[in-house]
Amino acid sequence: MAKEDATRLAQAIVEVKERTVLCSVCFNIGIAERCAICADDRRDGSILCVVEDPRDIVAVERTREFKGRYHVLGGALSPIEGVGPEQLRVRELLGRLEPEGVTEVILCTNPNLEGEATAMYLARLLKPLGVRTTRIASGLPVGGDLEYADELTLGRALEGRREVDA
């Protein structure tokens, strides 16, 4: 690597470290106290998408299907690794519901055991509060062949089938 490239890379890393902060509202990574999504008035504040990690926000944003706001938990329940509810930003999530007028919470945690446990735990907390609580669907990746699908994913895809509009 050329010296000037190495210097630029080093400067970029330092800049990232110095300029980025966690959003005080949703805990996404940003460059101001409120991240670009939380500061955007055009976003629908009544729908909150709960994710494990700021990287998941990037993935959901790529869909261009979601116009609400986010909440980053900072991980998923994993008792065996010592991650319980206290280690996640659950209290902060509950604290956002009333002031922001949230009517729906989408549980967008990973479709693995830890993510499912986190979603079930949050649903148990949120449902009694009268907030509509939904879970992202599981199914087959677009562009893939059915014959290569594993039985668990295909089973869930069948379970979550929907009526086709003619």
């Binding site: 008792p79 319980g84 509810p85 209290r91 509950l94 604290g95 519901l97 009333e98 735990y121 907390l125």
Partner: peptide, 9 residues
């Protein structure tokens, strides 16, 4: 582990 449900801050 799951007994202590955090309340809203």
């Amino acid at each position: 582990l799951l007994d202590a449900a955090p309340s809203a801050s």
